[in-house]
């Protein structure tokens, strides 16, 4: 059992940054994303992997990210780079490692084994660095549940839409139809295993309305957050994923009423004309927790 408070932290926005670009990695925390994902994979050219690791290590060691989660996206297990990537992640003591192109529980276990070696080498206690898995292929998506259940270090899975659509032999249409099954499958698997689930990036930075629509949809599907590519997307993402004042007040009423009525032995009652029973309790609690984590809760629960 891992006792790491980061397991269930708020991750509405997870922002990709090229680990090799000092201008990008020096202070992304001023935009207040929930997580940053320092990229050693696709953003870094094949002959620049060493330089990127060097830059990443010093960033992790020297920059105070003010509580923003520092995830590192490592190269896929089919490459020659991933083991060295893990060493630098552990040596620099990032918060989490994102496995690219994860296809099976075995991939997760392989990463965890490599992490253990590095943790021993650099004296980092096991369990301090978490794992997330990016599902980028049909096989990965099909294996979502076993991936979610592969390790107690794994906090969640993320859809990676570009590679996935290639594997499907289609393209990103903007309608979401090509992702419908993957998203449904993944959120089901994640929830079944008690993990978080994150959506793929939306790359058209000029279409903020489209970005908002997509974010609202995946929120409605149950997702916890979205991968983003630019700080311009943070505000919308947070707006969608943060409970509104009305939702918070409603949740507060439900929590208070349920607590009160339970003590009185009443099972079903009404709040603002709506029938409420114990089944509403966990959802209302979650809303309050989310509001607290997002820093917008001013009540006393």
């Amino acid at each position: 059992m891992i006792n790491n408070p980061n397991l269930n932290r708020l991750r509405r926005s997870m922002m990709f940054l090229n680990a090799q670009k000092p201008g990008l990695i020096k202070d992304p925390y001023i935009y207040k994303p929930d997580s940053i994902m320092l990229d050693l994979e696709d953003a870094v050219a094949e002959n620049q992997k060493d330089a990127a690791r060097y830059s990443l290590y010093h960033a992790l060691k020297e920059i105070d990210y003010h509580g923003v989660e520092r995830v590192v996206r490592i190269n896929g297990l089919e490459t020659a780079h991933w083991k060295e990537d893990i060493r630098v992640c552990v040596a620099g003591h990032c918060d989490s490692i994102r496995i690219s192109k994860c296809e099976s529980a075995a991939d997760v276990i392989a990463v965890e084994e490599e992490m253990k070696k590095a943790e021993e080498e650099f004296g980092v206690p096991h369990g301090e660095i978490l794992i997330m898995a990016a599902l980028e292929s049909t096989k990965g998506v099909l294996n979502a549940l076993e991936i979610c259940q592969a390790s107690p270090l794994l906090f969640g899975i993320a859809l990676s839409g570009g590679d996935y659509t290639k594997d499907l032999q289609t393209t990103i249409s903007g309608t979401g139809v090509e992702f419908a099954w993957a998203r449904g499958q993944m959120i089901n698997a994640a929830r079944c295993a008690g993990k978080q689930c994150f959506d793929t990036v939306f790359t058209n930075l000029d279409d903020m309305e489209g970005f908002r629509r997509e974010t609202e949809m995946i929120k409605m599907m149950g997702f916890d957050g979205k991968s983003i590519v630019n700080p311009r997307q943070i505000a919308v993402c947070h707006e969608v994923f943060t409970p509104t004042e009305k939702q918070i007040i409603q949740a507060e009423k439900i929590v208070k009423e349920v607590d009160e009525k339970k003590a009185m032995g009443i099972g079903v009652f009404t709040v603002d004309g709506k029938m409420i029973d114990i089944a509403f309790y966990p959802g209302a609690k979650r809303t309050i927790e989310l509001a607290k984590a997002a820093g917008v809760y001013e009540g006393d629960l």
Binding site: I30, Y31, L205, N230, P231, R232, I234
Partner: peptide, 8 residues
């Protein structure tokens, strides 16, 4: 500008 730093 689309520079989020400036917009902020």
């Amino acid at each position: 500008t689309t520079d989020v730093r400036k917009i902020m």
